[in-house]
Design a binder for these strands. Structure first.
Length: 281
DNA sequence: ACGAGAACCTGTTTGC
DNA sequence: TGCAAACAGGTTCTCG
């Protein structure tokens, strides 16, 4: 589930619970997530204070007072569960790592599919690490704009949809927001990537920023209700324009439903793409 | 070198 | 209703 806006929302929810707090106890419930955890995983976390929580693309970065960074990727189904009363809350299925703070609260990394992972590395090695070194620009940073996007797409013969999922082109988009951004920019997901340049690239870069900012704002506005009844962080009711809306009328088409208008589903590289063939060219 | 597809793993939804 | 197949928000590897 987590693309950039969801990870950012999780980051903001974790800040008041973890930032500036000391980890009194860390429990590792299995030796591996997607990858094996470091052998000294617990040792390097217990007793450390979390000074700052950052985000890069879909990665959460927890900077420790030891100079290490705890890097977290939520994969497809990873969640951070907030447990206020740990002693009366049994471990749930797929709770893999438990962080207990000095305040007696817990943050649990829960991940059924186990595509998520964690690692610990020295802060100085973060940028050149295998995780971050190939990432493209942050879409909400100043370095991301139409010309930068066009340059990254130059020579690419895949579909624009596939290119947007490549984290080297722009970091943080996943299947949902790639669909939504293409809808916002009125570009067909089947369009060949390198044909998106000039004005089209401006439109797409703008749509990407727009869609991400709105999704983050939707999370942020419900920050008060941040902890769901399940204690889960980062789930929100998103008002997606096209994603998951196959068969519905396009919100922007006045031509009525199919044929011609209406939202259809397409399979690209094994992933579902939702789009309006009438609006997107 | 590049792009499509498979693989990783488990839970939920869909279709016969 | 029951069961099997399809599908799920990510990333990386292999193959052609």
């Amino acid at each position: 589930m987590p693309e950039l806006p969801e990870v950012e929302t999780v980051r903001r929810g974790l800040q008041p619970v973890l930032e500036g707090r000391r980890l009194l106890e860390v429990r590792q419930l299995r030796p591996d997530l997607r990858f094996p955890l470091p052998l000294d995983f617990v040792l390097r976390l217990e007793g450390r204070r979390i000074e700052r929580i950052d985000r890069r693309a879909k990665y959460l970065l927890m900077f420790l007072d030891s100079g290490d960074v705890l890097l977290v990727h939520l994969g497809m189904s990873g969640r951070m569960l907030l447990i206020d009363a740990p002693d009366s809350t049994a471990l749930l299925p797929h709770d893999h790592v438990v962080l207990r703070t000095e305040e007696g609260r817990e943050v649990r990394f829960n991940d059924a599919r186990r595509f998520g992972y964690m690692d610990i590395l020295p802060a100085g090695e973060l940028e050149t690490s295998k995780y971050l070194k190939r990432l493209g620009p942050e879409p909400l940073s100043n370095s991301f704009n139409g010309p930068a996007l066009a340059a990254a797409l130059q020579g690419r013969k895949s579909s624009i949809k596939a290119a947007l999922l490549d984290q080297r082109v722009v970091a943080g988009l996943g299947n949902i927001y790639a669909c939504e951004a293409l809808y916002g920019a009125r570009l067909s997901p089947r369009r060949i990537a390198h044909s998106v340049r000039g004005q089209r690239a401006e439109r797409l870069a703008g749509a990407i920023r727009d869609v991400l900012q709105k999704a983050i704002a939707a999370g942020g506005s419900s920050l008060r209700d941040y902890v769901q009844t399940s204690g889960e962080l980062g789930y929100f009711q998103h008002a997606w324009a096209v994603y998951g809306r196959q068969g519905e009328t396009c919100p922007d088409c006045t031509c009525g439903g199919p044929p011609g208008g209406g939202i259809s589903r397409l399979l690209q590289g094994g992933r579902s793409t939702f789009y309006c063939a009438h609006r997107q060219r």
